[in-house]
């Protein structure tokens, strides 16, 4: 078996979670080393979104 795969099975994964934070929180509860990356899929109403961002910066 591949050495890296063996290491994964032996020591468990280290996870970068992208998006919904709850997945990372669940893993952290199980003491899995986890890094959360704040990301959301782009909005459909991109025009509205860009205007809301401008409003936020006012």
């Amino acid at each position: 078996m591949n050495e890296r795969l063996q290491d994964l099975l032996k020591n468990g994964p280290k996870v970068i979670n992208i998006g919904v934070e709850q997945f990372a929180l669940d893993l952290k509860e199980q003491e899995v080393p986890t890094v959360q990356m704040d990301w959301r899929p782009p909005q459909v109403e991109s025009d509205l979104l860009s205007k809301l961002k401008k409003l936020r910066k006012k």
């Binding site: 959301r40 809301l52 961002k53 409003l55 936020r56």
Partner: peptide
């Protein structure tokens, strides 16, 4: 309502 619009 801004946060709802931003995050979906």
């Amino acid at each position: 309502v801004i946060k709802v619009g931003e995050t979906g």
